[in-house]
Design a protein around this nucleic acid. Sequence first.
DNA 1: AATCGTTATGCGACTAAGTCGCAATAAGAA
DNA 2: TTCTTATTGCGACTTAGTCGCATAACGATT
Lengths: 148, 148
Amino acid sequence: MPLPQTEIPGRLQMQLAERGIRMTGPRRAILSVIETATKHLDASQILRKARTVDASVDRSTVYRTLDLLKRQGMIDELDLMHLNGERHYYERKTGHDHIHMACLRCGKITEFVSKTFESLKKQLEGECRFHILVARLEVGGYCSACRR
Amino acid sequence: MPLPQTEIPGRLQMQLAERGIRMTGPRRAILSVIETATKHLDASQILRKARTVDASVDRSTVYRTLDLLKRQGMIDELDLMHLNGERHYYERKTGHDHIHMACLRCGKITEFVSKTFESLKKQLEGECRFHILVARLEVGGYCSACRR
DNA sequence: AATCGTTATGCGACTAAGTCGCAATAAGAA
DNA sequence: TTCTTATTGCGACTTAGTCGCATAACGATT
């Protein structure tokens, strides 16, 4: 998981404030969970963790907040190749998109930043005249340790 | 949707036979639906269509068959950026992977084959020593007609 | 500080996707 | 035809996510 050390805690809160979006207790709890996460979390994990901060947080508030953050382009939604069922995972959007590689044997998730990926997106924007808002590249296979 | 004219109907059946996998009525119905599809179908659409061929086909058989085909690397599973809820879509795997671009305004799905995408996969295989079995690149944004 | 329009929340009931165990059935090799 | 093994339909279940609604809380304004 990307957790750049340069990242200011409370950044998501600030970004929402800048956009004139109301801040609330449950929202703060959920944002802090996402900001301090060290691995990819799904909605129910986010709910559980948020409740340790604010016990009243409800499941639907988690979903609504995730929708808000997605719409604002502040988080990305991942499947991680459905390694563990159908749930979705979330992570903060950083400046540079990265590729997720999921090992189908050991379950390890590897992230990878690639210039080629950036060129590919430019190619799509140009050749297809498509305006990209989200790009998600997920790969499933065997990691270096698990391939033989 | 890719429906190459060179494609032999019954190809999936043959591939399964080659691998010594048992052929059954329901399975045949489901395969034919997938083979003759002209757009991306989800599990319940596949079920509905398969039932016009063999009325007894059950939902769980559809899911089990889709799992089988996924495991055999004969179909790909797509989200299409969750344009219409959480369902998954399926398509036959062809020789060349392609990118799916989903327009978030009009819902159009555009497919794109790219050399750069192939290089990117090679890069992952090489630099990360990752053995790729599935690669899924989905893009959400605005298509040429909907961007302004 | 008190007011007030608007937005967000918790609750609970609901939908829809997908899973699973099991007894019955059908494939296909012998 | 027989027999083993894989597959099926059924039905009950789980789990992710949605929605309407009455209540609560934000935060701008006075």
